[in-house]
Simulated assay, not measured.
Amino acid sequence: MDYKLRGNTLEIITGVSTLTNHYVSVFVSLQSGTYIISDGGWIDKGFYDNIISSEDEDVFQRVETQFQAHFDIRQTKHRDGTRYYFKAVENPELISVMVRDVSQYVSAIVNSQAIAFNEAKETSQRATFYQDVNTYLREHYGSDILELNGSLKRHGEELAAIRFNAIIRRPTTTHLVMYVTGYTAPLFVKDACEATVNFQIAKKDIRVSRSGIFQRSAIVNTMANGFVPVKVNEYLANLEKELEHPLISYHSDKSKILEQIPERVAA
């Protein structure tokens, strides 16, 4: 897409992207009649926001070995300790092919690291939010009526696969609750869409739609990394339209939970 001259080295900014929202740069230099096409040490220096936890090092070493074999990539270590990944060719007509291979290699390595890193972050953030909300619900609704990660199986076998983060059951009304969170905007959107569909399925069930037995609420983690309004607002608006009442922002107004789901039912 672009290039920069860095002394005797040409940086080629490719159109190859990474899951960490970077475009891959490949560096070309001429050394003793041989063209060296490398990553410029950027993988090792973490320029792509690629982070490896110590627990995952063994796994990534195996992944790295496989990708190196696939793309025929070599590596060397500079005197300052930085590792460089590269290919070498004497024929200048093959430079573009080498640039393609190196850029694809960089993207593959960074993405494999980012996936595991983001999964760990997503799991940690999701678990923390779920724990906070679950604790709050336990404090205000007894275990005799609160069911976490519950299904609608008792309302029909065909509904057994439909699960909700929390179900509060009372003699005349069942409150269905979904949590919406996500470490990235796509994961946040996925939660919002899943909540919308689950509520739609519960609403369409003929037996319960006639009796109005189900009340539905969605609790949103507006502190999540994936809560990017410009990317998620339309999906949240669609969810709110399905519920026909406001979504509950847990961190800014969790008291709305008690308004939508009273602690005690009037006699």
Results as ranks from 00 to 15, higher is better:
97 V>Q: 15
42 W>M: 11
27 F>S: 07
69 A>S: 04
83 R>Y: 03
97 V>S: 13
36 I>G: 11
58 D>A: 10
82 T>V: 15
23 Y>E: 12
55 E>D: 10
29 S>N: 08
27 F>H: 05
69 A>Q: 09
22 H>P: 02
48 Y>S: 05
35 Y>F: 12
33 G>F: 08
50 N>P: 00
74 R>H: 10
95 I>R: 12
76 T>S: 14
26 V>H: 00
51 I>W: 04
60 F>A: 02
65 T>K: 07
84 Y>K: 05
66 Q>A: 11
30 L>Q: 04
32 S>G: 06
50 N>Y: 10
54 S>A: 14
40 G>S: 03
31 Q>R: 11
28 V>F: 06
83 R>Q: 10
48 Y>P: 06
54 S>H: 12
26 V>A: 02
62 R>I: 09
75 Q>P: 00
35 Y>E: 12
48 Y>A: 01
81 G>I: 09
58 D>C: 04
29 S>F: 07
86 F>W: 13
85 Y>H: 02
86 F>G: 03
47 F>L: 14
26 V>W: 09
87 K>V: 06
92 P>V: 13
39 D>C: 14
78 H>S: 07
43 I>C: 12
29 S>G: 06
45 K>T: 15
39 D>T: 06
24 V>G: 02
70 H>T: 10
72 D>C: 11
42 W>A: 08
87 K>A: 00
26 V>N: 05
88 A>K: 11
82 T>E: 03
39 D>P: 05
53 S>W: 10
36 I>Y: 14
56 D>Q: 06
93 E>C: 08
42 W>V: 09
87 K>C: 07
50 N>I: 04
87 K>S: 06
71 F>N: 02
92 P>A: 05
50 N>C: 01
41 G>C: 02
35 Y>V: 03
29 S>C: 13
41 G>W: 00
69 A>W: 12
64 E>Y: 04
73 I>S: 00
60 F>P: 01
73 I>R: 04
49 D>C: 00
37 I>H: 05
53 S>T: 14
98 M>L: 13
